[in-house]
Amino acid sequence: MNFENPGAQAGVLQPRSDPAVVREGHDRPPSGGKSPLVSKAGADPLRALGRVLVWAFVTFNLLVFAFLILSSFKTTTDIFSAPWGIPSSLHLANWENAWNESGFARATLNTAGLALGASVCTLAVSAPAAYVLSRIRTRSAGPLSVFFALGLGIPAQVTVIPLFEMMSRVDLVNSLLGLFIIYTATHVPFTVFLLTGFMRTLPREIEEAAAIDGASPFRSFWQVMLPLARSGLITVLILNIISMWNETLLGIVFLQAVDKYTVSLALLNFLSSMQFSGADYGGLFAGVCILVLPMLALYLWLWRRIIEGITLGAGK
């Protein structure tokens, strides 16, 4: 295919100058996104107070996460006697216990498989639907998009009882496969919704060029649209992975056997077992870290995309 159609590219890639940003005589040139209002406003004591509050909030969040990680290396006595101290020695026993004896190894495997598999399946089902809903104008495309968006407003507590009944009839209760199907299906509305919005913003010209070059619509979807929409696809994939990794309500209803638990269920199980086996807060925080750290890693790696995806949902 030949995409080097100058007419099509002109619309997409034409460099735009924004004359409004710098006006002669009035403004300093923009410097690294810093507003020219800063210097004026900086003296305002209210604003200074505001900054202190923002930093306090930021510090609080950072301390909380430092606390989680530090505590996972401490003994329970250490956690209570010096909650903010550096652990006296790396108490790796917490992690060993959580990983081997409290079933977190199995749970991590279960959750990772569920979240990765189901989010990929959701995407595979939703991307084609979003493509035709955003690109083909039939009478039903608009109402169908709205119909999919309605699904965003239906909370799991409404559907959980009928779903349980449905799945128990086909013997898919207490089964990871059953939860896999449910996760895949319940994330379809959000995924279709986000991708339809995203694909609407993509330029049509490249697809037009592909059409002129004789590409079939399917090929145009596969070889033009999907690569174009790559960033949106990855974003929604990650958002779904995060949502499935942390999901709890459907998990506690559908999974009963300990060897099928997801990480959040293993953590809740650990929490309630402390009633009998004594307070092992070190182990608890090791479990907490097993639930948090994969998402933290994903976030550190892809935070820009995650934040873009969230704002994409709310913006235009």
Binding site: N246, L267, V288, V292, L296, Y299
Partner: peptide
């Protein structure tokens, strides 16, 4: 933003 992607249980 970070708390938004951490499990609410934690």
């Amino acid at each position: 933003f970070f708390p938004h992607i951490v499990s609410a249980i934690v």
